[in-house]
């Protein structure tokens, strides 16, 4: 059985202008010890997807449908105390900005031992000993001495390591990291990503990593989900997604990426995608990418919503014009 099974998840925000369909029918599953990357541009619903799974959606948002079954229990149905026990205990979480998640008025040690004592019932000495081990595990030098420092004495990368230490302190089976390195410098990011990779193996955790950076998923994830306008548009293993992207959006996104390696980079132009992502108050009626798609022609792209279908084993795509099913040239001139 999968570690996490998300089925037709829908989360809408009721606003004055109307209903924002932030997450609109998202389904995926995560196996034990696997790392799943969710990528997509700003506003496509990555954060709301995981917040929905964790029961953390704030009003005016509401999970209006679907389920998220984790180790036999549907998290969407859980309430209050039960949910809090799962959160932070069986599922660890890390967010983008470690400074907003750490309390600046408490020492690192206090924040680490608090979790251990509350969720695992350790006494003070046990918790302190374990806290030092955890800091060592996330490679904080001089861990025993640094335990009594306040967060401001730690660098940005070290704070994010502390967040990871807190998130894994109760040996969760699932770790959710929402843009864990977006606020960090690239050299610090590399260290944090390598750490996540290492801990995933040691602790046999399933990991969901959310990012807008194609490079980050390529270097961390086993499987990748590409989201667009509240929906999954493509899902595959990392290798197959980068080798043979099927969705016109994924394909265009990969070609729009500036490269650090290769020839003729300076002289070349990047592929750009015209227009911008739709307003989720009033998304295109059928295929949500159709208005920007190079292949949407006179056919039913604007009238019949494409299903997410398995185009080859393990590779899912939501498009009537996947790469492997179309003639070489796009419709019309670009």
């Amino acid at each position: 059985m999968a570690l996490l099974e998300v089925e037709d998840l829908r989360t809408y925000f009721k606003t004055r202008e109307g209903e924002v369909r932030a997450v609109d029918g998202v389904s995926f599953s995560l196996e034990h010890s696997k790392m799943l990357g969710i990528v997509g541009e700003s506003g496509c619903g990555k954060s709301v997807t995981v917040l929905s799974i964790m029961g953390l959606v704030q009003t005016p948002g509401r999970v209006v449908g679907g389920s998220a079954v984790f180790q036999g229990r549907d998290l969407v149905q859980l309430k209050g105390r039960e949910l809090e026990d799962v959160r932070g205990h069986e599922i660890g979480m890390i967010f983008q900005d470690p400074m907003t998640s750490l309390n600046p008025t408490l020492t690192i040690g206090t924040q680490l031992t608090e979790t251990l004592r509350r969720h695992l019932g350790m006494n003070k000495d046990q918790a302190r000993k374990r806290a030092v081990e955890l800091l060592e595990e996330v490679h904080i030098p001089n861990a025993a001495r640094r335990l009594d420092d306040y967060p401001h004495r730690y660098s940005g990368g070290m704070r994010q390591r502390v967040m990871i230490a807190i998130a894994i302190s109760c040996n969760p089976k699932l770790l959710i990291a929402d843009e864990p390195t977006t606020a960090l410098d690239v050299t610090v990011q590399a260290g944090v990503l390598d750490l996540l990779h290492e801990l995933r193996s040691i602790h046999e955790m399933g990991v969901i990593i959310i990012t807008h950076d194609m490079g980050v998923v390529a270097e961390t994830a086993d499987d990748i989900i590409v989201m667009y306008a509240g929906q999954i548009v493509e899902q595959a293993t990392a290798l197959d997604l980068f080798d043979r992207p099927e969705h016109p959006y994924t394909e265009a996104l990969l070609e729009a990426l500036p490269q650090v390696e290769g020839e003729g980079i300076r002289e070349g132009r990047l592929r750009s995608i015209s227009g911008r992502p739709p307003d989720l108050l009033d998304p295109p009626p059928a295929c949500r990418f159709a208005p920007r798609c190079a292949y949407a022609g006179q056919d039913d792209c604007a009238t019949v919503p494409p299903d997410l279908r398995e185009i080859r084993p393990g590779h899912w795509v939501r498009s009537s014009h996947p790469t492997s099913e179309r003639a070489a040239a796009p419709v019309g001139a670009r």
Partner: peptide, 19 residues
Amino acid sequence: QALLAAVPIPNPRRMQERR
């Protein structure tokens, strides 16, 4: 050199080598 090595490259086949 370190800076360039840290850039994540959108090619999963290079993951091990990059690390």
